[in-house]
Structures are given as structure tokens and as C-alpha cells.
Design a protein around this nucleic acid. Structure first.
Lengths: 221, 221
DNA sequence: CCGATTTTTCGAACGCCGTTAGATTATCTA
DNA sequence: TAGATAATCTAACGGCGTTCGAAAAATCGG
């Protein structure tokens, strides 16, 4: 049981108790900051729980008071990353009052977020694909993270609906975009994109344009 | 220096020397068989060089006579996997004399190969994305493996050309397909596809159909 | 067939890793 | 201030990939 588990289930929370909780959450977030710093300098693969602990000024074992595992540290970072991504896609869609523009903008924002923040992409791939061992997130993921991921794509689904797509078609459009974006990003991420001499952003934009015009063709007859 | 390195650079190769080389290659492939068996029973993530060695009847250190690293073992398996995949896409394309049919068949064969052989997909993702540490394949891949990967897609490029696409358009079509297939396969692989309620094979077929009709539209006017 | 040489394997260790158990210190409560 | 609880530490476990140097097995020249 980690610190915040126990804090969460403490009932009335007197004023000093609240203060204690705040301190604990602060320490938790300082550990996450240290982890981010280690990721930045060593890369996600080169990071270890021990290196994160050292960067945070802790002994390795101390991290287990705040997180139940190394994976939980990563999951917390991913959750925060997905929140930022959701904000980006929401903001992009909000900047357009035409559905087609909103769809394209949200999709492009999704791609751009990861193109410009390879660290977040690392994190996403790491947990998203089951890179981690036993009963980890990999094999059945965290429902909350799954939901957070879906939320980042919600603006696309909404825009598809406004474009005239029914629910099934909207889901299909979102799935197609997501799969394609993941593929392109993986190619970029692994430097394999140069095998094909393509501009990844142009690939994404083309996909979005085709998706929009495809919906229009169906919706308008 | 591994065994086959040294054998390769031995000059005239007398008859007994050839025999020695053959024996060495056999041992090498027995180790690879053991690795495959371990992957099958433990999964690629659960496998360790030590477990592979044990399965092959070796001490861990002995593997370093035949392979320069664990990664080299994986790379050898991936090379063989890519050869089989290439055979699959080539055969699929060869079964059609119309370019559209060949393009679709090769693409579908690519997808089907990995859908039906998740172990090969594991391997591909593992080395393809830089899952491995230091100066490994991950960060700059093996040129041979890169070429072998490209070769698996060659039938698609050829068919695109026969469809009337110029070279740039052909490369773009191949890149688009590959990115999309990778994305869909990753979704399947990580069981994330059910988030979207889509049939992955249908997604691929739809993409291939749209790609073909897109080329046709351009080529025919 | 034997001794020398080379190829192949092993035993032991190194320095990492994530994680756990139990003792220990800091912090708050009463 | 005494006791409880929260937070951290020390030490260890078993595992990992890898390396080193010695042993064993196979091969070769005489």
C-alpha cells in the first residue's frame, strides 16, 4: 500500500492531516520530476528505478513507499502526459467551428504533440505495448489510462459526428486515424521513416484530408 | 569474434574445415531453435539469454562463442522471420496477374503473416523499435535487416508501379501501407484494438482498396 | 599414435536490475 | 513527553547480460 492509497482512504481529514497529505503528494511529484529528468538525460531505456531514486535524493527502497512499482511511476507520468495531450487536441478542435477543420486540427495536434515530445512518445509506447513484465500494465493496461487515451481522441470523434458520420463510422474514423498515427509515429520514433523518404506530417495531413472527404462523400450522398 | 566470423574469413577451406564450419552452423541453428522454443513457452519478454542457453543445453557463457550478444540471437531470428515474410508477400503477389489484385494480396499477406504469427511480430517490434540498450540494433538497426524488411514490401511497390503510379507515388503508397499496417498490428498486438470495436483485417482491406482506387483515379485521369 | 594447436565449453565472477524485509529515524498526536 | 504512525534506510535476494581465464574436446602435423 503506497502513501497515497492510505491517505485517500483516511476519513475526515483534520487540518494537519490534510497538510500531511499535501506534503506526501508533493514528495510524490518531486519523484516524478526526478524521473522526468532522468528520462531526459538517459533516455527511458537507460533509466532505472535506482537512478530515479538517486536523482530524487532517495534510496531505491524509499520509492516503494510512494509507488508500488517502477511501472507505477511510469504510469503516473503517462497519465500526466495523456492529460496534456488531451488538452492539446481539445484546444485544437476548439479553434475551429467547422467540423472538418476541427477534425483535421485535432488529428494534427495529436501527431504534433508526439512529434515534438518524443519523451512522451517513449512513455506511451513503453506502457502501451506490453513492454513490462508480469501482471503489469502491458498485458491488460490500466483502465484509467485506457480511458485517458480515448479521451485524447474524443475531439476527433465529436468532429466526425458533426461531419455527418454515424456512430459506427465515427468510431471507425477515429480508429483508422489512431492506428495510422501510431504507425507513422513509430516509424519516426525508430528513425525508419527515412526508409521511405516521406514527410511524416504530410502523411498525417493527407490521411486527415482523405478521411474528411470520405465522410463528406458518404454523408452528402 | 563469434564462430562464424572466424570461419568466414578462413581462406581456402579444406574439406575437413568445411565440415567443421557445417557443424558450427548446425550448433548455431540449434541454439536458434532453442530460442524459438523459449519464446513460444515464455514469451519474448520472459525469455533470457540464460533460459535460452539452458534450453539449448549450454552454459550462458557458451552462447557468446556463437553469438556476440543476446541481441545478435534475436537479430538472427528476425532475419529468418523476414525471409519467410518476404516469401509470403511474393507468393501472394505472384498469384495475381492484375496489378490491383497483386497489390491487395501482397498487403493482405503482410498483415496476415503477423496476425497469425504473433511471435514474429514480437520479434519485429522488439528489434524494430529500439527496445534494446546500448549501441544496439535499436538505435541504428542492422542494414541487412533494414533491407530484408524493405524486401518484404517490394511486391507492393512493384504492383503500384504496374498500376500506373510513378516512383514517388509508389514509395508513398508503400510507406502509407506499412505505417498503417504497423499501427493496426500494434493495436492488435497490445489488445488495444477492442477499444475501437474494429475488425483489423477489414481495416487493412479497406486501406488497400482505397489505395488502389486512389492510384487508379490519378492514373486514369 | 602423440604432442601441439585450435575450437568449443565451462565455472566463477562483475555490476547492474527490481523488489522485499526489518530496523531505524522523523513527524505528528494526545 | 510518550506513544503511534509515517517515512526512510540498510541489507539482502534472485535475476539479468556479459566477461575472463581455465578446462576440455576436437583437429591437425609429424
Amino acid at each position: 500500500m503506497t502513501a497515497n492509497d492510505s491517505l485517500r482512504r483516511r476519513a475526515p481529514a483534520s487540518a494537519p492531516a490534510k497538510r500531511r497529505q499535501a506534503v506526501s503528494l508533493l514528495k510524490r511529484s518531486l519523484i516524478l520530476d526526478a524521473a522526468r529528468a532522468v528520462f531526459e538525460s538517459e533516455g527511458l531505456e537507460g533509466a532505472s528505478l535506482r537512478s530515479i531514486a538517486k536523482a530524487a535524493g532517495y534510496t531505491p527502497a524509499a520509492l516503494y513507499f510512494h509507488f508500488s512499482s517502477k511501472e507505477a511511476v511510469y504510469a503516473a507520468l503517462l497519465a500526466e502526459s495523456l492529460d496534456r495531450l488531451k488538452a492539446a487536441t481539445e484546444a485544437a478542435a476548439a479553434g475551429h467551428d467547422d467540423a472538418a477543420g476541427a477534425f483535421r486540427a485535432a488529428g494534427l495536434a495529436f501527431f504534433t504533440f508526439y512529434a515534438e515530445n518524443p519523451g512522451d512518445l517513449d512513455l506511451g509506447f513503453y506502457l502501451f505495448r506490453g513492454g513490462m513484465k508480469p501482471q503489469g500494465l502491458g498485458r491488460d493496461f490500466d483502465p484509467g489510462l485506457n480511458g485517458a487515451l480515448a479521451a485524447t481522441l474524443a475531439p476527433l470523434g465529436r468532429a466526425a459526428g458533426q461531419l455527418g458520420a454515424d456512430e459506427a463510422a465515427g468510431e471507425r474514423l477515429v480508429a483508422e486515424f489512431f492506428a495510422y498515427a501510431v504507425g507513422v509515429l513509430l516509424l519516426v520514433h525508430t528513425r525508419r521513416i527515412r526508409m521511405f523518404g516521406q514527410d511524416p506530417r504530410a502523411m498525417i495531413e493527407r490521411h486527415l484530408d482523405l478521411a474528411v472527404s470520405g465522410v463528406r462523400r458518404v454523408a452528402l450522398g
